[in-house]
């Protein structure tokens, strides 16, 4: 039993996660760079595997430490690890010698590996695969991406990816609808998405109208009183009081306001009809 075949076997053992390696290796590598730099870039690409970058950089710097780490990694692949160690000692000068050899051998990793040249990078692959393989073993299946929303199909529901995604989307929408219902007062009793939307639209419109009305009023008040009051220029005086009032008001205040001063607003609209006149 020659060592390269054992390497291959360890890959296939950790096969579910080896797609990440396939993504990784076509990563463009500057030819003149040392193995250290390349692997650093590789670690950046990996991202999700925490601590891999550190491992990778130590691979090219100091091989023996890495083999120790990898030996501590996989309890399941312990025997294979041993074999790795024996290889790594022998391949130590080769893998650190040139980065180009490394890259070439990376590209052909699926083929039957040749002699010592390849041992360097196959060790790297073996390490990553053992790391991810360990993760996979813990969870029983390859780890999903982070922003993946987990949806389970109940009995009788469709399980193809489109309907799963659609179901996830619908759940998200209904969740946000619930948040909105809590925000808009008097919207909790309304049943039906269309009616809830109607209520939300009405509420936003009323709020925007209030802003318009208030700015109209502010304009009037501002123009009326600004020349007379000199002390109000200092924002320092004004700001704290507003902050205090803003804190005192409960969240129900605008709604009451909307109901309470609607006639007043109409009056304002009639009185200050400059908006429509022009």
């Amino acid at each position: 039993m020659d060592p390269p075949i054992i390497n291959e076997a360890s890959f296939s053992a950790a096969n579910p996660s080896s797609y990440s390696l396939a993504e990784l290796w076509p990563f463009p590598i500057s030819g003149a760079g040392t193995g250290n730099g390349d692997l650093g870039g590789l670690g950046l690409r990996m991202g999700s595997f925490g601590g891999f970058r550190g491992d990778a950089t130590t691979v090219s710097v100091d091989e023996s430490t890495v083999t120790e780490q990898s030996a501590s990694h996989g309890a399941s692949a312990g025997r294979k690890r041993k074999d790795f160690n024996s290889e790594d000692e022998s391949s130590k000068p080769v893998s650190t010698s040139s980065a180009n050899d490394l890259n070439n051998s990376c590209a052909k990793r699926m083929k039957e590996s040749r002699a010592k040249e390849e041992n360097g990078d196959s060790k790297v692959e073996g390490e990553t695969s053992s790391e991810t393989g360990k993760k996979a073993n813990e969870q029983g299946k390859p780890e999903p991406p982070k922003d993946y929303i987990h949806v389970r199909a109940r009995r009788g529901q469709a399980t193809d990816s489109h309907s799963l995604a659609e179901r996830a989307r619908r759940e998200k929408i209904s969740e946000r609808m619930k948040i909105l219902q809590d925000l808009v007062p008097g919207c909790n009793k309304v049943i039906g998405k269309a009616l809830v939307l109607d209520e939300i639209i009405n509420y936003i419109q009323s709020l925007q109208r209030q802003v318009e009305f208030l700015s109209m009023k502010l304009e009037a008040v501002n123009s009326r009183m600004n020349p007379t009051i000199e002390g109000f220029h200092s924002k320092d005086l004004a700001a704290p009081t507003f902050d205090a009032t803003g804190m005192i008001f409960s969240s129900q205040a605008p709604r009451e306001y909307a109901q309470g001063t609607h006639p007043e607003w109409l009056h304002m609209q009639v009185g200050g009809s400059f908006d429509r006149a022009t």
């Binding site: 936003i204 709020l207 925007q208 209030q210 802003v211 208030l214 700015s215 009023k217 502010l218 008040v221 501002n222 009183m225 004004a238 009081t241 507003f242 009032t245 803003g246 008001f249 969240s251 205040a253 605008p254 306001y257």
Partner: peptide, 15 residues
């Protein structure tokens, strides 16, 4: 918007 309305209203009151 609600907080905006609150604050504008308090400003108007203050004025």
């Amino acid at each position: 918007l609600t907080s905006q309305v609150q604050i504008m209203r308090s400003i108007v009151q203050f004025y």
